[in-house]
Simulated scan of single mutants.
Amino acid sequence: MTKHVDQNEIGQTVSSASEYLRGRLKALQELDTYFQRDAILDCANFESQAPTIVTSLVKDMVRAKALESLGPHLVIDSGWSPNDFLMRQLLLGQGIYSGPTALYLWGLSDQYPYQVYMTFKSGYRLPQKLHAKWAVNVVARQVTQQKLGEFVSEIPVDGTQKQIQVYSRERTLVEVLRKPYSGDTEMINTAYKRYLKDYRSGVNQLLLVAQEFNMGERVSELLEVML
């Protein structure tokens, strides 16, 4: 008698109930291990030997409200307090925080960014439909691909293995001296004073970045007044 072998949602052939259950248990263990270290799961990039069964389990967790779905592939642990800046960046995919928003993220400004400044490569268009909870009030600025990737830093986010992409303190301090930010002298003075207090050793780097963006003279004048 020929032994019956069937294809199931594990994505492999199985020959017994025990084998099926072992596959399901393995998927559960993978998800448990993952969520112990990261509150955000991109199902499209999640490596598993049983991708279909993992997807099924994730859907069950969304229905049970253990996970919150933010799109076709992105889910977050409902027990985690989401970081707005990280979620917005994950949803948009390409933006780098810049201008006053970057100052806030670096602690160089106390002005909460109700308008969120992000920089994208030339030609990028914001999605027409954005998840309102995370992607409202985005002010998009465009630069060349080369300039986009210069002096980018990362800020880790508690509860995840992911980082927020933001321009370095030095690039941001140079950037806010240009329009449309340059009129906010209080914001600029506060940012430079805090930088000089906490990161004085970085002044040479600040001057190098300023020269890179043709702002060396302007930054030098400002530093002379404050030093």
Score class of each variant (00 low, 15 high):
residue 99 G to M: 05
residue 216 G to F: 02
residue 40 I to D: 04
residue 84 D to Y: 02
residue 105 L to Y: 01
residue 19 E to Q: 08
residue 61 M to L: 08
residue 145 Q to R: 14
residue 118 M to R: 02
residue 102 A to I: 05
residue 73 H to C: 07
residue 162 K to L: 15
residue 114 Y to D: 11
residue 55 T to P: 09
residue 31 L to E: 06
residue 145 Q to F: 13
residue 202 G to H: 14
residue 179 K to D: 13
residue 223 L to I: 14
residue 14 V to M: 04
residue 222 L to W: 12
residue 145 Q to W: 12
residue 225 V to L: 07
residue 80 W to S: 08
residue 59 K to Q: 12
residue 188 I to E: 03
residue 40 I to W: 00
residue 10 I to P: 05
residue 194 R to L: 08
residue 158 D to F: 04
residue 194 R to Y: 04
residue 195 Y to T: 06
residue 173 L to D: 04
residue 69 S to R: 14
residue 64 A to H: 05
residue 94 Q to D: 15
residue 76 I to G: 07
residue 157 V to C: 03
residue 1 M to V: 14
residue 209 V to D: 08
residue 205 Q to A: 09
residue 128 Q to Y: 10
residue 111 Q to H: 12
residue 218 R to H: 10
residue 92 L to V: 13
residue 9 E to F: 03
residue 22 R to F: 05
residue 129 K to N: 10
residue 36 Q to L: 02
residue 175 E to F: 00
residue 197 K to D: 13
residue 177 L to Q: 15
residue 79 G to K: 01
residue 171 R to Y: 03
residue 183 G to N: 03
residue 100 P to R: 05
residue 110 D to H: 12
residue 160 T to Y: 00
residue 27 A to Q: 09
residue 27 A to M: 08
residue 76 I to D: 01
residue 22 R to W: 05
residue 30 E to V: 01
residue 139 V to P: 07
residue 122 S to I: 11
residue 186 E to W: 06
residue 138 V to D: 07
residue 110 D to L: 10
residue 87 M to V: 14
residue 112 Y to Q: 14
residue 142 Q to E: 12
residue 67 L to R: 06
residue 100 P to T: 01
residue 51 P to W: 01
residue 140 A to K: 07
residue 130 L to F: 07
residue 53 I to C: 00
residue 138 V to A: 05
residue 17 A to F: 04
residue 153 S to W: 00
residue 59 K to R: 13
residue 47 E to Q: 15
residue 161 Q to T: 15
residue 77 D to L: 02
residue 156 P to C: 05
residue 152 V to W: 00
residue 138 V to G: 08
residue 44 A to M: 04
residue 207 L to P: 05
residue 2 T to A: 08
residue 61 M to R: 04
residue 29 Q to M: 10
residue 181 Y to M: 11
residue 110 D to C: 08
residue 128 Q to L: 10
residue 111 Q to I: 10
residue 141 R to A: 12
residue 88 R to P: 06
residue 104 Y to L: 02
residue 15 S to E: 09
residue 95 G to I: 07
residue 111 Q to F: 07
residue 45 N to G: 13
residue 130 L to D: 08
residue 200 R to D: 10
residue 52 T to N: 12
residue 196 L to E: 05
residue 191 A to G: 08
residue 143 V to H: 01
residue 196 L to T: 05
residue 128 Q to A: 13
residue 148 L to P: 09
residue 193 K to G: 08
residue 54 V to R: 06
residue 47 E to T: 14
residue 101 T to C: 09
residue 99 G to R: 06
residue 94 Q to E: 15
residue 137 N to L: 03
residue 58 V to I: 12
residue 24 R to F: 04
residue 155 I to H: 11
residue 141 R to C: 08
residue 56 S to C: 00
residue 43 C to V: 11
residue 133 K to D: 10
residue 145 Q to A: 15
residue 193 K to F: 01
residue 125 R to Y: 09
residue 212 E to V: 12
residue 8 N to M: 02
residue 197 K to M: 10
residue 117 Y to P: 12
